[in-house]
């Protein structure tokens, strides 16, 4: 009995699938275009940060379409939607708190451990040297 009731309440159909596929592809192409546009930009410039923010928003939009339509959550009962979505709101706090914490840790380290900071600002050795070390390591690993 229950199964027939379940099978009945699906929305959309193939048309909806095609629509969502196109939306997802377009969003991905926009993301990639932004990624390519970002390449030449200076590290840490505000425009680059703005583009990164836009990419995150596009990512969330993609997540909404996948969960809502492909996973069918949008067509489920409101109770079920709330059961799934409300606990996930914890992520808002997790992300804010942990990224804030990480940033603060970096500043504390840079302020109170100047030696380490100096080390991290030193330019890396030339690539060839490191490559030689790597091949030596590889030889050792093989032996």
């Amino acid at each position: 009995m229950e199964h027939t009731a379940v099978a009945e309440h699906h929305g959309g159909g193939t048309k909806e699938v095609i629509k969502v596929t196109i939306i997802l592809s377009v969003l991905t192409v926009i993301e990639l275009a932004l990624g390519f546009a970002m390449m030449g930009m200076e590290q840490g410039s505000s425009l680059k940060l703005a583009i990164k923010g836009t990419i995150v928003i596009l990512m969330l939009a993609k997540a909404f379409y996948i969960v809502g339509y492909f996973m069918h959550l949008k067509h489920e009962v409101k109770n079920l939607i709330m059961t799934i979505v409300v606990p996930l709101l914890l992520f808002v706090w997790f992300i804010t708190a942990f990224l804030f914490e990480g940033n603060s840790f970096k500043h504390l380290k840079n302020t109170y451990d100047p030696y380490k900071k100096e080390l991290s600002t030193k330019k890396a050795e030339k690539k060839e040297e490191t490559k030689e070390i790597k091949t030596e390591e590889k030889k050792k690993a093989v032996e």
Binding site: I95, L99, F105
Partner: peptide, 10 residues
């Protein structure tokens, strides 16, 4: 999030 935290702390 652990990845993000580490990246922000480095």
């Amino acid at each position: 999030i652990a990845y993000g935290t580490t990246r922000f702390a480095t």
